[in-house]
Computed example of a mutant assay.
Amino acid sequence: MANTMSSFYVLVAIFALISVMQRVSAAEFRVGGAKGWSVPTDSNALTYNQWAEKHRFQVGDSLLFVYPPERDSVLLVNKDDYTSCNTGSPIKSFTDGNTSFKFEHNGAYHFISGIVDSCQKNEKMVVVVMADRSNKNPNSTKPLESPPPSSSTGTVPAPAPVGESSPSPPSPPLSPAPSSPYSPSSANSLIFSFFGVLGTFFGSSILLLF
């Protein structure tokens, strides 16, 4: 029974550690900073697109739009509706005043204000999202393989004429150099193994406290 309870607490500690690591890997960006999501009024301030270009967004990150819900909203639209400030057919619409939008895939996201006049006054933004922070590239280039050595023909060289030295036999083909064990996939395996060991150590340390 004691062993069962110990195993249970170790699993709980490991899952808690993994959850914390996932939260740390993602980031939340407040759109517009302290001013929030509103019509730009300061000509010297960065536009929303200039602000977006200064940040690196990845899958799993999120945007926080803060605005007065009775006077504004946030619309996720396609490129054409973004350009024309068309609020009639949004992909998604948010009116809660404290909108958290999480990026589920990479690519371009287009946001505009739900008020046409506000959108025309540049309350709009394009965000380009990169790949996931933990994304692995399954199409990594494989190292070129050396061609197999040519097979021996078994032909016996003819003896040299009297008074002449026999020609030296051809040198055997060089064996291809062994591939390095420290390939990108091996490095990734080492990293994940390290975090696995770290999680187990963390869980064991928690048990010692009880």
Rank of each mutant, 00 (worst) to 15 (best):
S175D: 14
Y182S: 12
P161R: 12
L208P: 02
N137I: 09
P184M: 11
V74L: 10
M21T: 13
S150I: 07
C85S: 10
M130S: 10
K124N: 14
F192C: 07
E104F: 01
F57V: 06
F101D: 04
P167K: 02
F65I: 01
F195D: 04
L17W: 15
K124G: 09
G196D: 13
W37Q: 04
S84W: 08
D117E: 14
F195N: 06
P138G: 08
F201L: 15
V24M: 02
L46F: 03
S183I: 05
M5D: 11
V39D: 02
I112D: 06
P69R: 10
V39N: 03
A13P: 00
E164D: 12
T83P: 02
S179E: 09
R133N: 05
S19R: 15
F111M: 08
M5P: 00
P157Y: 00
P178S: 14
T47S: 15
S134T: 02
N139M: 11
T47G: 13
S168H: 11
E70Y: 02
D81I: 05
R56T: 09
N86A: 08
A108G: 05
V74H: 03
V156R: 10
K142I: 01
S151Q: 10
Y82L: 04
G36T: 03
V197H: 05
S180P: 07
P159G: 08
A45I: 09
K79F: 09
L190K: 13
A16E: 03
S171M: 06
K54Q: 15
S180W: 07
P184V: 12
W51K: 04
L198E: 09
P161F: 09
D117F: 06
S73E: 02
R56D: 05
D117Y: 03
T153S: 15
P157H: 03
Y109A: 01
G163T: 12
V20N: 06
P40G: 10
S19H: 13
F101P: 10
D80K: 15
L64M: 08
N49R: 10
L17K: 14
S175K: 14
V126H: 08
A34G: 06
A52T: 05
